[in-house]
Amino acid sequence: MPTTNEDPERAARATFLRERFTSSPRGARLARQAAVRQMDVWGHAPESDASCTVALVVAELAANAVQHGRAPGHDFALHLAYDEQAQLIRVEVADASAAKRPPATLPTAPPDGESGRGLLLVDVLAERWGSEPRQPIGKTIWAEVAVGAPTQL
């Protein structure tokens, strides 16, 4: 509940989003859509560069969680955190598989290959990214995306 000094509209725009999704292609799509909606709440219109960049990073990390991190009976989690001062969005996608971690160095995808470019895209779009163990099981892949000032409020 906002205090009397706080702008109620600003208080309604939480600086984070945390949701769980089924570990399926539909879940990955819903995670991307949730990220775009949240970016809009934070003042970055769906068609803005910031929103499109975050949507692409979320899509790649969610697709990897579904394809490589799926564990029977477990969902994956999306966490977005907005640092307004730094104008940075931290994207975290957590899954239940600790066995399949991103490679220490990114492989080069063959020019005619149908996959293998997801983390290369994340590497280009994010200021930095990495992975960490998740307790009690699994891993979290995170990326920090510079978004600039909100385009709308």
Score class of each variant (00 low, 15 high):
Gln33Pro: 00
Leu30Asn: 09
Ala45Ser: 14
Val41Lys: 08
Trp42Asp: 09
Cys52Ile: 06
Met39Ile: 13
Ala31Gln: 08
Ala50Asn: 07
Val54Gln: 05
Asp49Cys: 03
Leu30Gln: 14
Ala35Lys: 07
Leu56Cys: 12
Pro46Asn: 10
Leu56Trp: 05
Ser51Asp: 07
Ala34Val: 02
Thr53Trp: 00
Asp49Lys: 08
Gly27Arg: 02
Glu47Pro: 00
Ala45Arg: 15
Thr53Leu: 06
Ala28Cys: 03
Ala55Glu: 09
Ser48Gln: 06
Asp40Met: 04
Val41Gln: 10
Arg37His: 11
Ala31Asp: 04
Arg37Val: 02
His44Gln: 09
Pro25Thr: 01
Met39Gly: 10
Val36Asn: 03
Gly43Trp: 08
Leu30Lys: 08
Ala45Asn: 05
Thr53Val: 15
Arg29Gln: 13
Asp49Trp: 04
Arg37Met: 06
Cys52Gly: 12
Pro25Arg: 08
Cys52Ala: 14
Pro46Trp: 07
Arg32Asp: 00
Val54Arg: 04
Gln38Asn: 08
Gln38His: 09
Ala28Glu: 01
Trp42Gln: 10
His44Asn: 13
Met39Lys: 07
Val41Ser: 10
Pro46Cys: 10
Ala55Lys: 05
Gln33Ile: 01
Ser51Pro: 00
Leu56Arg: 09
Ser51Leu: 08
Asp40Glu: 14
Val36Gly: 06
Val41Ala: 13
Arg37Cys: 01
Ala45Pro: 04
Leu56His: 12
Met39Glu: 08
Val54Met: 08
Gly27Trp: 00
Pro46Gln: 11
Trp42Glu: 10
Val36Leu: 13
Ala45Ile: 05
Leu56Thr: 15
Arg29Met: 02
Ala34Pro: 01
Met39Asn: 11
Gly43Glu: 11
